[in-house]
Amino acid sequence: MKQAKYGLLLYIFLALPPVASLMESVMIVHMHMQLTLLVLSGFLMGTFFKQRFASFFNNWNQSGVPGVILAVVIWAYWMIPRIMDETLTMHSIEIFKYISLPFLVGVPLRDSWKKVSYTVKHILYIFMTINFIVMGWIYVAINQQICNNYLLVEQRTLGFGSFAFAACMIIYGFIWIFSERKEHQQSS
């Protein structure tokens, strides 16, 4: 339950208007940090929802796969460049961001994570890595401004940032395959 409290605190912090506007003023911070932290807040709050609505999760997310699919679909939606614009100009989308990312990505992911097999986890990991690579490529290669609210240089920065995260994920993937997986298997 401690985790849920931390998650709620993080959520409230991220919703504070000065924090939200500071994070949304820099494209890469908006997309890579704010969105991720919102998911994290939901992930932490997930312990509360799992306990409070145990039967709901058991009925609707028994295998964990529906939760993962929901998380992936919502996450993919937030990767569409025009949504960045809309969230800055339309209040309804901004509100949707603060509901969808914690509660439709973070919470179901928390419930699913222990239920799904390693194969699903690996697929999700590979999906996220490819997602970062494709985003990086789009944002670096396109010479036109694809978000009205952000400059071309910020767009490129986001692209390179995505490449950097993809590189981190690939490196960790290799470390996992060649070393930590074996240790994990040995210790469990």
Binding site: H32, M33, G161, A164, F165, A167, C168, M169, I171, Y172, I175, W176, S179, E180
Partner: peptide
């Protein structure tokens, strides 16, 4: 988990 610490270090550098 030095692999994880290294990747987090790289992620912080990237940020």
């Amino acid at each position: 988990r030095w692999g994880l610490w290294t990747v987090l270090l790289l992620a912080v550098i990237a940020m």
